[in-house]
Each structure stands twice: as structure tokens, then as C-alpha cells.
């Protein structure tokens, strides 16, 4: 289970969680999905993923959660070295302006998805965010070309080329 890129979904409402995970199903072949119902659980899951030698590529996070809220969780993860590069997306209908500003400024929020979402839009966001992750981490893009944005990954190969041998 080493060197995998995980998608982490943090959501406390079971039905919403189910819907999200269902919509993300086709990414699971390349990006295993982990779920958490609260910020505290999310922290544990992240720790577990890191300890097993993998990374978190994308966090889809609800704002209103029991205990610590989603924006505070994202800020915390932004300040951790291991999750600094993880792409951070809020999936919410209830984050106020102030929280959202905080998320952008302090958690370097990468995207905001308003509930209810459409499957296509969600897919597009996930593809673009994970493509960004693979390119920024200078990972070998080949294993991900069939599922992510192949054009952008091929373009990244030009900057950071594989070589003849």
C-alpha cells in the first residue's frame, strides 16, 4: 500500500457522504478513497495514510462538522508539511464569507464546490486538482494519464522530461 495517492472525503452526513463517494467511484482504481465523519477522525486517517508511506492528494471537506469545523481542519493540514501540497476543496453550502476568506487565505483553498453539486462538475474539479497535484509533486505522470488530464500531464513531461535510454 506504499506510494499511493489518496482522496480523503470529510463529511458528517451519511447520505451526503454516500453520494460523494458514489460519484467518485471511477477514480478508485488509481486513487483509493478514505472517509472521515469529523475533523478528529480525519486527522487520524491522514496520519494513518502518511505512516503507511502514502500521501493525500486531494481533500474534499465539508465545513460544518461536529467539533472542529472544516475550514479549521484545512488550515491545520495546510500547516503540516506532509499535507501542505494536498489539494484542498471545500464542499459545502454553509460556509459564510468570513470562513471562506479564511480558507482561501490561510488554507490555500484550491476550489469551492457549492452543494448541491453536479457529477460532471465534481469530476472536472477532481481531475484538475489531482492533475495539479501530480505535476507539482513532479511525480511520474504516466500511471495517471488515462484517468486525469492527459494533455496537461503530457505538457508537464516537456518541462520535466523522461529520457531516451
Amino acid at each position: 500500500m506504499e506510494n499511493q495517492i489518496f482522496i480523503l472525503v470529510v463529511e458528517d452526513e451519511l447520505e451526503v457522504m454516500d453520494a460523494l463517494v458514489n460519484d467518485l467511484e471511477e477514480f478508485e482504481t488509481h486513487f483509493p478513497i478514505e472517509i472521515a465523519n469529523s475533523a478528529a477522525e480525519a486527522e487520524q486517517v491522514v496520519q494513518h495514510i502518511i505512516d503507511s508511506g502514502s500521501t493525500v492528494g486531494l481533500i474534499l471537506c465539508d465545513h460544518v462538522l461536529p467539533g472542529k469545523n472544516g475550514v479549521d481542519l484545512l488550515i491545520e493540514l495546510q500547516n503540516e508539511n506532509k499535507t501542505k501540497d494536498s489539494r484542498k476543496v471545500l464542499v459545502t453550502g454553509q460556509a459564510g464569507l468570513e470562513d471562506t476568506v479564511q480558507a482561501v487565505n490561510k488554507a490555500h483553498l484550491n476550489h469551492y464546490i457549492a452543494k448541491p453539486w453536479s457529477k460532471e462538475a465534481l469530476h472536472d474539479v477532481v481531475i484538475q486538482q489531482l492533475t495539479d497535484y501530480v505535476i507539482r509533486r513532479k511525480l511520474n505522470p504516466l500511471p495517471y494519464m488515462s484517468i486525469l488530464d492527459a494533455g496537461r500531464l503530457a505538457e508537464s513531461l516537456r518541462d520535466n522530461p523522461l529520457t531516451d535510454h
Binding site: 492527459a150 494533455g151 503530457a154 505538457e155 513531461l157 516537456r158 522530461p161 523522461l162 529520457t163 531516451d164
Partner: peptide
Amino acid sequence: TATTAMMMT
């Protein structure tokens, strides 16, 4: 390889 990457785009 670099040529292939460019042509793929």
C-alpha cells in the same frame, strides 16, 4: 521521448 511528449499534447 521529448518529441513524443510534445506530439501527445
